[in-house]
Amino acid sequence: MRNRKARLTLCVGAIAVAAGFATPAHAQPTGPATALATVQAPADTTPAVYGRAAYLLDASTGKALLGRNADTRMPIASLTKTMTAYVVLQSAKPTDMVEITPEDVRYAVNGGGTSAYLRAGDRLPVKELLYGLMLPSGADAAHALARAYGPGVPGFVAKMNDTARRLGMTDTEYVNADGLPMPGGDGHSTARDQALLGVKALENPLLKQVTATRRHTVEQTADHRSYTWTNTNKLLGAPGALGLKTGFTRAAGFSLAFAGERDGRLLVGVLLGETVSSRRFDTARTLLEWGARQA
């Protein structure tokens, strides 16, 4: 058992989970997924959880309700964009305008990433770009924001890593603002670190609003065309669900950072390395219901 304290505005006390068996940081899941056991209660009282790593935190008390391989480093794909949004709002105002460049558009297309289908020459407020970043998981929006608030993407990535250290995310290293694979190697994080980030991100009212939005439309103005974005997070719609972020690459598998509010409690969870896309949302829904019943 490994204990570690993290200072969080919403959390008090120590967060403790079982480390589980070691897994190579960049190994891909192979074969059928196996259920993960909780560390807080007998296995027959907990829901089945699949994938390579899982973590569920009661952020209102700082108590870890479930964990397996919570400190194993692995790629996290587009969960990276939660840090991008968080860092942007450390210095940007929601009303700040960012002009989309051809480079931003090409980056998403050439990198094979998901896109918000931004158009070069459009000028959009930071608030709207956050919806483009978090709902359809736009790599073009990530590149535009990182370029504007680094300044430059390398400078922005340095800010992401500095922020991770400040938040106590000691097992996290970012290499870009979107989580796409890089020639020099992917970044990495852990289920525990991403839960810590989720708690901090949800302290920001705008980010909390964005991540809980199922569909968002931007009306056309003289500065930009109209856009409509649908959230990739199918957990939304469940009672109290706040969303957070989805992710997928071949190396990372299917990932999900999720949160929910129940009876005045904030639960934050992370699933990494799932092999079935839809199952992560069912698992998260079940974990939120189960977690709400834990003392």
Rank of each mutant, 00 (worst) to 15 (best):
T228N: 12
A77V: 09
L133M: 03
G62S: 07
N3S: 13
A108I: 10
L65D: 01
M169Q: 05
D58M: 03
G31Y: 13
R262D: 05
S60A: 08
E99K: 14
M97R: 15
E128H: 13
G187Q: 00
R106Q: 15
G13E: 10
A85G: 11
A108Q: 09
V109D: 11
A37Y: 12
R265F: 08
G111S: 11
A37R: 11
P154A: 08
A92S: 11
Q90W: 15
P24W: 06
L8D: 03
E128I: 03
T38A: 14
A164T: 09
V270M: 01
L180T: 09
L287I: 09
V98S: 10
G260V: 01
T101G: 13
G185I: 11
A85P: 07
S137Q: 07
A141I: 13
E99I: 01
L8T: 09
H26E: 04
E173G: 15
P94D: 12
S115Y: 00
L202S: 05
H188E: 12
P47V: 13
E128A: 11
I15P: 02
A142V: 08
G198L: 04
K93L: 14
V126T: 09
V17L: 11
L135A: 03
A64L: 10
N231E: 03
A158K: 14
D193I: 06
T82P: 01
E103C: 04
L56C: 04
N161M: 06
V210S: 00
M182G: 06
L8E: 03
A33S: 15
F258G: 01
P136H: 02
V210N: 02
A164V: 09
H188W: 15
K208A: 15
G240Y: 06
A292K: 02
A43S: 14
R7N: 04
G184P: 00
R165A: 13
D96E: 14
D263K: 13
D178I: 08
G253T: 04
V175L: 04
M1C: 03
G51N: 05
K63V: 11
Y131R: 01
R279D: 07
D162W: 04
L167I: 11
R52I: 07
A164R: 05
L36H: 03
V105E: 03
F156L: 07
A292Q: 07
T23M: 11
G247A: 05
L130E: 05
M169L: 13
A41D: 15
P24V: 08
